[in-house]
Amino acid sequence: MSASVTVAITLEVEPEEAFRLFTEEVDQWWQRGPKFRFRPKLNGTMRFEPGEGGRLVEIYDEAKGELYEAGRILVWEPGRRLVFEWRGPNYREGQVTEVDIRFKANDTGTRILLEHRGWETLPPDHPARHGLDSRAFLTMQGGWWEEQLVALKALA
């Protein structure tokens, strides 16, 4: 079993378009500043490298290859599902979480169900937890994604 948090939002577009916005337009909706960016001072650009085996990266200088790699893309099914690994800058070996996003057509557009799991790989005193207990930490993490998804919805 795995500690996880799930949040959801409905976008008034088709699933293919919701998937495209989520991936291609990631730098547009991924909020800026220290709360959201991996190395906020470097003013990087977020990008999903398309396809399984691609990466989620924050690019600082493309020519010099300067970037932060959050993780590999594990599932890339446009219009249906996206799964990628997620490591924060302060994660150690073996500490890895996973983000699993499902895109599902509904009456008004596309329901995006985002699950962020694998938090049990971070020990209770890990700095990413900000000293919070499991429930408070996961709820905070859910709120973090909610803010992101609201920004994504604004693009649709």
Partner: peptide, 16 residues
Amino acid sequence: FETCLRVTGDDGVIQH
């Protein structure tokens, strides 16, 4: 009903 937030503990049990 549609789930919009789910918080699950290490034991797999929904906490909220």
